[in-house]
Design a binder for these strands. Structure first.
Lengths: 136, 136
DNA sequence: GTTTATCCTATTAAATCTATGGGATAATTA
DNA sequence: TAATTATCCCATAGATTTAATAGGATAAAC
């Protein structure tokens, strides 16, 4: 299941990407427009800022804005920040690899074999989709 | 993340599929061989029996066995029983569809758009993989 | 009738996710 | 400078899900 955090984060990014001008948009406006709990959204936008997707401005006229062009923001990056590993098991993760402590041999493991394929198919989608594609 | 239930279920199915003869294999043997908590595995095998993947036999010489040929068991079916929906959000699920209560229009929803693609790519893998492919 | 192994339900323990609260910080406006 | 506005940040509560365990019932074999 996709977490609410990821869902809300994607919606917020899309909303920002859909703006004509790249002016700061307030949390309140995004939360209203996308039906997201304002406080929850606040923490999500904060993490998107800290990971380099968004810029922010305080005080009146402040808010959040995209730092890069939507077409320059691949879903691989967004998903890894919001949802975490793209792989469904750590032992097939490219960026978050961990060995299974129960499994003696990855090469012969059925789960490993299957999840490699699932990971690759998901990667294929995420690598070929940018934020711009979702706003069309 | 793949649940332990699914991981263990897949391993158990693979172990059964790897047996020479299709004789009943005891829970204890599978749990030992695959490093799975016996009691937890018990409940998983039970659900796999109730959903028509496994047969069972009680008493001495009893255990679980595959009902169909491994090549006749597609991963779509296994995953749906063990893990649930293949889609990451209910609004793009083929077998477990649910409308999002927050989202006014699916067609214009960025999350919807992206998750349709992810679902299709995962389906493509699961549909083209059977239990037999994982045992090779 | 004793042993063996699955069947079944209930419950607990742990982890994770979702959401909220309250105040600190910084920028704008007057 | 003071008031207002909006992000920043930490802490925590509440809800849900997952993982595992317990204990006994049932059925088959010998």
């Amino acid at each position: 299941m996709l977490s609410k955090k990821t869902k809300y984060g994607l919606k917020a990014l899309s909303y920002l990407a859909s703006q004509e001008k790249n002016q700061p948009i307030q949390i309140a406006e995004i939360s209203r427009h996308e039906n997201i709990s304002q406080k929850f959204l606040e923490s999500i936008l904060l993490s998107l800022r800290k990971t380099g997707f968004l810029g922010s401005k305080k005080g009146k006229g402040g808010g959040y804005y995209l730092i890069k062009e939507p077409s320059e923001i691949p879903m691989t990056a967004v998903m890894r920040v919001l949802e975490g590993p793209i792989a469904m098991v750590p032992c097939v993760s490219l960026n978050f690899y961990e060995k299974c402590d129960d499994c003696p041999d990855e090469a012969s493991c059925a789960v490993h074999k299957l999840m490699i394929q699932v990971r690759d198919s998901a990667l294929d989608v995420y690598r070929n989709t940018t934020l711009a594609d979702l706003v069309l």
